[in-house]
Structure formats: structure tokens, C-alpha cells
Design a binder for these strands. Structure first.
Length: 210
DNA sequence: ACATTAAGTGATT
DNA sequence: AATCACTTAATGT
């Protein structure tokens, strides 16, 4: 049994289920900025995130992106779940934010486990629920927050999932995630800096008082 | 030293 | 808030 599987999912699943996951699944290691799942892909494995973080994006008709939410360790990707139920295709793109370790489980076990293991059923329902809540939060931010508030929230979220207040990123990258222009981000960041909420240097932003 | 990339700025819509 | 056009600063080769 992989220690990270035990560590992140041990308390969630019954022992017997954990054994079975360990047996039928396999470990997959990814570097940062690798595409885990792309728009239009179909899904043959459910990934459990053991280590690292993944960002989930939507794409507009011009190919510009918009960040929907982050998936952290101990989570799974809800899009994957809804895809492998039928033979639906992915509506989103998932990209690793850091080096990431996944435990891949073939979809064929999914249905059987729903009946067999209450802890699995709970996990799946819980995953859907938390993802739904996160999406609502994202919609709220898009609809009700001004750009500067959104930006601060983005930085704080990112710092949280990465586990560090120092973000190695460029203004342009942030602009892509937030579906706006670099100039706007630069100006707002500067405002946040004078408000003592962040500290900037080239290629890095430190989020103060989290 | 030069080229490239990141970030800052003023003006306009 | 977006876009343009341009400048300045930091970094790689």
C-alpha cells in the first residue's frame, strides 16, 4: 500500500475498500503544468489526488481560459466522475499546478463499489457536494465581486492550495487564469501592494496576512 | 553587449 | 475594465 494513499484516504475508506483500491489502481506522477484531462477527452480512470494540486479551467470560443477551481490532495476530480458515468466527454481542462501524484482507478470498479461500500458512496456524494459549493463560490466571485476583490481571492486561494504565501507566477499568467488582460492585473496588483496586502518582485508575489 | 521577457504607464474607448 | 502603444527593468546568452 502506498503511504500517501493510506495517509490521505485511510480515514475515509473502509479497510477492505482501501486494500482493493491499492490493488486495482496504480500510481501516476506528473510534473507541474501537465495536462491531466483536456476538453473533449473521455475518461478511463478516476484519479485520487495523493500529492500536489490541479487547476480546473474552462475555455471560451477564442481559446482563452478561465479558472474554475483547484483540486487538492485528498480530493478527486468531479468532472471525471460525471464523465465516466456515461461515456460523456470532459467539459473542462485540468492542469497540474505543481508536481503531482495521482492514484488512478479504472472506472469499471466505480459502479460496483457504490453498492458495495458505503464509504465509497459517501466519498463520491461528498465530492460532488464540495465541488458544487466551490463552483457557486466561483460564480459569486464572477458576478458580484469587482476585479480587485477577485484578484485578491485568487491569490489567497492559490496560496492556500500551494501551501505557501510566495507565488511563483507572472502577471500574464494570472491574467489568463482570470480571463482578463495583463495590464489590468498589473495595475490592480500595484494597488494591492500599496495597500500592504501583497509584496511583489519579478516572477513572484507574496501574499501577506492570509 | 544584445535580445528577450516581465512589468509599468498614459491615453483612449 | 479593455486595449493600444510605448517605456523601463530584469534576466538569459
Amino acid at each position: 500500500m502506498h503511504p500517501l494513499l493510506q495517509q490521505n484516504f485511510g480515514y475515509l475508506f473502509q479497510d477492505k475498500l482501501l486494500q482493493e483500491i491499492s490493488k486495482v489502481g496504480y500510481l501516476k506522477k506528473l510534473d507541474a503544468n501537465e495536462v491531466v484531462l483536456d476538453i473533449g477527452n473521455s475518461v478511463s480512470n478516476i484519479p485520487l489526488v495523493l500529492e500536489g494540486a490541479i487547476k480546473v479551467l474552462r475555455e471560451d470560443t477564442d481559446g482563452n481560459e478561465l479558472l474554475l477551481y483547484f483540486v487538492e490532495k485528498g480530493d478527486t476530480c468531479a468532472m471525471t466522475l460525471s464523465c465516466c458515468w456515461g461515456t460523456a466527454r470532459s467539459k473542462i481542462r485540468a492542469i497540474t499546478e505543481t508536481t503531482t501524484q495521482l492514484y488512478m482507478i479504472p472506472v469499471s470498479y466505480l459502479e460496483q463499489w457504490m453498492e458495495q461500500y458505503p464509504s465509497w458512496r459517501n466519498f463520491i456524494l461528498e465530492s460532488y457536494h464540495t465541488r458544487m459549493m466551490e463552483l457557486i463560490e466561483t460564480v459569486d466571485a464572477l458576478a458580484f465581486l469587482r476585479m480587485d476583490e477577485r484578484l485578491l481571492k485568487y491569490l489567497q486561494d492559490k496560496a492556500k492550495v500551494l501551501g505557501t504565501p510566495v507565488l511563483q507566477t507572472t502577471h500574464q499568467d494570472i491574467a489568463f487564469d482570470m480571463h482578463t488582460s495583463r495590464v489590468v492585473i498589473s495595475r490592480l496588483l500595484k494597488k494591492l501592494e500599496t495597500e500592504q496586502k501583497i509584496k511583489m518582485t519579478r516572477n513572484s508575489i507574496e501574499v501577506l496576512h492570509l
